[in-house]
Design a protein around this nucleic acid. Structure first.
Lengths: 214, 214
DNA sequence: GACTTGCAAATTGTATACAACATGAGGCTA
DNA sequence: TAGCCTCATGTTGTATACAATTTGCAAGTC
């Protein structure tokens, strides 16, 4: 693994896990020591994270961990509600049987986890959810769409902290994934578009409710 | 100006002007010598250009200038047709009188240039067009939307080479800009959305026709 | 004659040393 | 005492030296 990748992973994980709090400074030297590399690859990693919106640069003051306000969350959900349905429609028009099978498997695992609710099910569901959405992106076969969305998917990993699922919401989310698989299998772009749109808006509502209750 | 910025500008201009042809390699040493800086800022510049989609990295083989195929153009127009209308709608809901005045000024200059057709009018119109679209983005006040679109606006600067305007198309484009200003001034989001959508699709048609005629 | 293996050149990746710049504290002066 | 100036410190920005990896070519062998 390249040193730049190690530095990138170190900082990214630190941000997503909350080790690096929003607003805290990331000096190159400190990150370099933490990751066990020199400053050069650290600079590359920080620039990459900046491009992804996870850190900001204050001029001549280095990098700070990006803070996500309510406004940012609204913006992110608005863009996802716009782009992911298009992704789903393209996926419905293009997906191969193999890929559909994989999607189905993911959504069925998610349904199981959602009904069993065994220890650590939230983390596992989160991972399954990510995999599902990324697979849809791959099926959409649009590099620029995928790149745009990846910057919007990263952030929710932070936002997720806020999500407090009401009874039934986990189940609904999993059910929507399954319905999306059916729409894609039927190569029905409009159906896929609609259900994905509803899915994102439902997620938005869950997030906002969770946030208000703090 | 920082060395990294100089390196960035050097390569970017080279790509947009066609000095660096699509597919050609960009070795760090060569770029460093051309820009008159060391390799370190060149690396940063190339990474930035990669994030913007203007260059690609072949593993352990350095950077190559990105090539834009018909497929890429289709993808870019599809995304612009999706995002720029939303931008216009947001602008209509938010724009200040000052900003509207600026937009009006730009579109009127464009109308003049389009009817006079003096020497070099195509270049000037291109610049005015860019300014106009970027100003709409600023009015939309959505950093992530702007960032996403900037990566899609860069590419058309290359694609523009293909554009061959039929008589009246320049005039129509300028007229659409003016109508957009009116929609924004009326704070009519739906109107702004519609006219921008038509505007992008018209641009797409012009591009595709120009491309086919080669 | 074709394939493999080893070497050399070139290029990227990394580390470190140095320069420039901004910042903040402390003392000096009015 | 308030304001300003100076200097020390820390951080980023840049250059360069070095390491590691790859690629193409050539020579040797089967």
């Amino acid at each position: 693994m390249r040193a730049a990748d190690r530095a990138y992973a170190t900082v990214r994980d630190g941000i997503l896990c909350g080790t690096y709090a929003a607003g805290s400074r990331l000096t190159e030297t400190e990150v370099a020591q933490t990751a066990g590399v020199s400053r050069t690859p650290v600079r590359e990693a920080l620039r990459r994270l900046h491009a992804e919106g996870l850190v900001n640069f204050e001029p001549n003051h280095g990098a700070v961990v990006a803070a996500f306000e309510l406004e940012d969350a609204e913006e992110i959900f608005e863009l996802r509600a716009l782009l992911e349905p298009v992704c789903a429609r393209r996926a419905a028009e293009r997906a191969s049987p193999d890929l559909i099978a994989e999607l189905r498997s993911l959504s069925q695992q998610q349904i199981e986890e959602s009904s069993r609710r065994a220890a650590g099910h939230l983390a596992r569901i989160g991972a399954l959810n990510d995999q599902f959405h990324r697979l849809i992106q791959r099926a959409a076969d649009s590099p620029r769409l995928a790149k745009t969305l990846s910057g919007l998917i990263e952030a929710p990993l932070i936002l997720r902290t806020f999500a407090q699922y009401a009874p039934g919401e986990l189940q609904r989310s999993a059910d929507q994934h399954l319905e999306l698989v059916q729409a894609i299998e039927a190569h029905d772009g409009a159906w896929a578009h609609s259900i994905m749109h509803a899915h994102i808006l439902a997620g938005r509502a869950t997030y906002l409710r969770g946030r208000r209750s703090r």
